[in-house]
Write a protein that binds this DNA or RNA. Structure first.
Length: 520
RNA sequence: GCCCCCAUCGUCUAGUGGACCAGGACUCAGGCCUUUCAAGCCUGCAACAGGGGUUCGAAUCCCCUUGGGGGUACCA
């Protein structure tokens, strides 16, 4: 940290360096996606950087959209990335509860202030009435929005509606004149005509607050200092500003984060996986978890979209990110996620792991794929021997199975559906079969049955047959792994052992001869 | 339609008036290495949206145009 005092260029600390209270306030309507996780990450980074608090608050004022699986998914995603919260629905805190539907009494109490000061009023318009209004506006090419028809009701008119038993909502009475200025830390002043805020609903007819009202009340009472949220909220920021003003409260510092674009670069990222040019792009956090992405990689990746750790360095730890993160450096430009870079990063993190770490991280999904118990797999000697062979070949943990499954099968479970794969480059079926037979003799007698000894013997064998090493080895590779692409051959043979290896060579040899006969 | 936000390589970004004929990373192409595939190393392609200003000097400041995005609910 640069803390040179005494020079005239000293960086004076301002309020954005003080311990901040930052909330992540999702609505539990669906599964957490990468855009939401990025917002939470920036919230968390700022809270941790300043030594403040990261608060989780659930915005469930729309009960019709409530999804019971959502909260668990959300918390799982945050925990997976290591974003621990200091206050939240599960752990409570000084401003509990942290679920808006449980805070209804507070909103009901607070709306009285606005009603009394004339900053809010009851509106009795029905849904049908409002729909008709909008249709008429559209037909006339006018801006659509509430026309304040009940803002200036006389006492008699109001009494008539009440007597009728009409349900009502409470609307905000926006200033009719002047301009409203919203200050966004990274975008500067955003100015709109005050009356462009068309008296939105604050309290619905069921008595629940709308988002706009609840967010202001909660941010105030929870003493939130910084609000980081998606760019899609810019247009409602003037309303929030006006509500804060109506209460006479100080608005938190606002930072509207750039939206995350679709991988195609067109429009906001979808909450479901999208396919662009035949490639599938994931969107939900649980999908990334299941696909075998590492939280370290996602953390690193997301941190560098909309903010930049260091122009000359791509890989960094979370501690380093916390140290350097500064909300003032957030970039306001919308961004498409560079997915190929994420894969690269994931591979980088995999390559940094020790054998033991990688084995542990691989075990759960691999055990499932192999039909083994995780504990049994973790103790299986084969796993630890395979890990160094596949480490630099893995992009995702979930790819582990296709690299190592052959080692856990028996000879009869390896099938050669396409025997032509057993043929080495530049050879024909007969030559490859001959190579197999030739190598089989080596495998029978080589001592010890280790990678080094096998390598020496096979190199000599290739020379003996007048073949290049690559084509000579192909039949063996496919014979033991069932694929043309596999971990290094000699180490693989050592893991398999002599007996099992010979069984596979024999099966492959037979398959190849049958194939040659069929061709002839 | 109306309101608002944004604008550097294909993508993520550095750049806050001169150190920039614009730096890094991913992707892509070529090469080296090599038992397959990777990894690693080397080289290369590739951008300041356009037009006006301001200034001795603009990627950087201002204006316009264009393009992209967001919003326009008793959803968040």
């Amino acid at each position: 940290m640069d803390t040179q005092m005494g020079t005239h260029v000293e960086k004076h600390a301002d309020k954005h360096d003080a311990p901040a209270r930052v909330r992540f306030a999702p609505s539990p309507t669906g599964y957490l996606h990468l855009g939401g996780l990025r917002t939470a990450l920036f919230d968390w980074l700022h809270a941790r950087h300043t030594g403040g608090q990261f608060i989780l608050r659930i915005e469930d004022t729309d009960q019709s959209r409530y999804n019971p699986d959502s909260l668990a998914d959300l918390m799982r995603g945050l925990r997976w990335l290591g974003l621990d919260w200091d206050e939240g629905p599960d752990i409570g805190g000084p401003h509990a509860p942290y679920v808006q539907s449980e805070r209804k009494a507070l909103y009901t109490e607070q709306i009285q202030t606005l009603l009394a000061s004339g900053h809010a009023y009851r509106c009795y318009a029905t849904a049908e009435e409002l729909t008709a209004m909008r249709e008429a506006q559209r037909a006339q090419g006018k801006p659509q929005g509430y026309d304040r028809r009940h803002r200036f009701l006389s006492d008699a008119e109001r009494a008539a509606f009440e007597a009728e038993g009409r349900p009502s909502v409470i609307r905000f009475a926006a200033p009719l004149e002047g301009k409203t200025v919203v200050n966004d830390l990274i975008r500067g002043e955003i100015t709109v005509e005050s009356n462009s805020v068309l008296d939105p609903v604050l309290v619905k007819s069921d008595g629940m607050p709308t988002y706009h009202f609840a967010v202001v009340v909660d941010d105030h009472f929870m003493e939130i200092t910084h609000v980081l949220r998606g760019e899609e909220w810019i247009s409602s920021a003037p309303l929030h500003q006006q509500i804060f003003d109506a209460f006479g409260w100080e608005i938190p510092t606002l930072i509207h984060l750039p939206v995350i674009l679709d991988p195609s670069g067109k429009g906001k990222m979808s909450k479901r996986k999208t396919v662009v040019a035949g490639k599938e792009y994931l969107a939900l956090v649980h999908e990334f978890i299941e696909a075998g992405y590492l939280p370290e990689a996602i953390f690193n990746f997301l941190t560098n979209v909309g903010w930049n750790f260091d122009p000359e360095r791509e890989i960094f730890t979370r501690e380093e990110a916390i140290e350097r993160f500064d909300i003032r450096d957030i970039n306001p430009t919308a961004a498409a996620l560079p997915y190929p870079k994420l894969e690269w990063l994931n591979g980088m993190y995999i390559r940094e792991m020790t054998d033991d770490e990688l084995a542990t991280r691989l075990a759960p999904s691999l055990a499932r794929e192999l039909g083994m118990r995780e504990a049994a797999l973790r103790e299986d000697a084969r796993l630890l021997k395979l890990v160094p062979l596949i480490r630099e070949r893995l992009k995702l943990l979930a790819d582990g199975g296709e690299w190592v499954d052959w080692a856990f099968k028996t000879a009869d479970e390896i099938n050669y559906a396409d025997p032509s794969l057993l043929i080495g480059k530049g050879l024909d079926a007969a030559q490859s079969a001959a190579a197999l037979a030739h190598g089989r003799a080596i495998l029978e007698k080589v001592e010890p049955f280790t990678a080094d000894a096998l390598q020496a013997a096979f190199r000599a064998g290739a020379e003996e047959m007048g073949l290049k090493v690559g084509p000579y080895l192909t039949p063996f590779r496919v014979a033991i792994a069932g694929r043309t692409v596999s971990p290094p051959l000699f180490e693989s043979l050592e893991i398999l052992g002599r007996t099992e290896t010979l069984a596979r060579i024999d099966n492959a040899h037979t398959a190849l001869l049958d194939y040659a006969a069929a061709q002839a």
